[in-house]
């Protein structure tokens, strides 16, 4: 598989185990995701999907091996640098409750630009454009509690992508949505990601969503115990 650019994500000789709890072991000898690629990662809950996302985001560190994001081995970065790297290059969306309750919609989006140390004016412009695209510009001064869950998740997309990250990590962002909202959310998310040429790593146990993605992966391939928790 020849590529012009280096891959967005490359894992080598990766080993991880929760000491205290959780699903046994992640063992990944060699795995990479190309730039702009959209990957659907599936498997039952508790199979280590979230752990893998944490490793990609640089929030957790592997016991051994390397996590290269955009040619940078983030396991070798100093903690502060690694956090800054995440702020600038990786966007994260959770299952639900993505927003800080005491900040309004716009502030929730802008907080990401604060940690990425982006210029204020361009951050504002970027945030407004994204909210507009996602149909949330009217609600920008509302509190998260005033929004529907579907709207909250769309704000989460804006927050994750406002810094223009190369990689978007989404951890079952549609699990709390009904099917109509799920449709709208997937379209919005992938559209904005495509506009920015962002690589997407999407985790879900709902295989009905895999048709949206370029590549489908079973997390079970990475776990030592074969995926059963």
């Amino acid at each position: 598989m020849e590529q012009q650019q280096s891959p967005a994500v490359r894992l080598k000789q990766l080993r991880f185990d929760w000491k205290k709890r959780g699903p046994g072991l992640l063992e990944i000898d060699e795995f990479s995701i190309g730039r702009g690629e959209t990957v659907f990662l599936y498997g039952p809950s508790g199979s280590g999907k979230t752990t893998l996302l944490n490793l990609l985001a640089g929030v957790l560190l592997p016991r051994q091996g390397s996590v290269e994001i955009l040619d940078q081995d983030i396991t070798r970065l100093r903690p502060y640098r690694r956090d800054l790297f995440r702020a600038r290059h990786i966007g994260v969306i959770f299952q639900q409750l993505n927003l800080i309750p005491y900040l309004d919609v716009l502030e929730n989006v802008l907080i990401a630009t604060h940690f990425a140390k982006l210029d204020r004016d361009s951050a504002h412009k970027q945030a407004s454009e994204l909210l507009e695209t996602l149909g949330m510009q009217q609600q920008r001064h509302k509190r998260p509690t005033e929004l529907s869950i579907g709207q909250q998740q769309r704000v989460a997309v804006a927050r994750a992508l406002v810094t223009g990250p190369e990689i978007l990590i989404a951890d079952e962002p549609t699990s709390a949505l009904d099917s109509d909202n799920r449709e709208i959310f997937m379209q919005h998310m992938l559209q904005v990601a495509a506009d920015n040429d962002t690589t997407v790593v999407f985790v879900s146990h709902d295989r009905g969503l895999q048709e949206y993605f370029d590549r489908h992966l079973d997390i079970g391939e990475f776990t030592a115990g074969g995926g059963a928790a």
Partner: peptide, 8 residues
Amino acid sequence: ILRAVGAH
């Protein structure tokens, strides 16, 4: 959330 958006 703060951690996810890059807070140390």
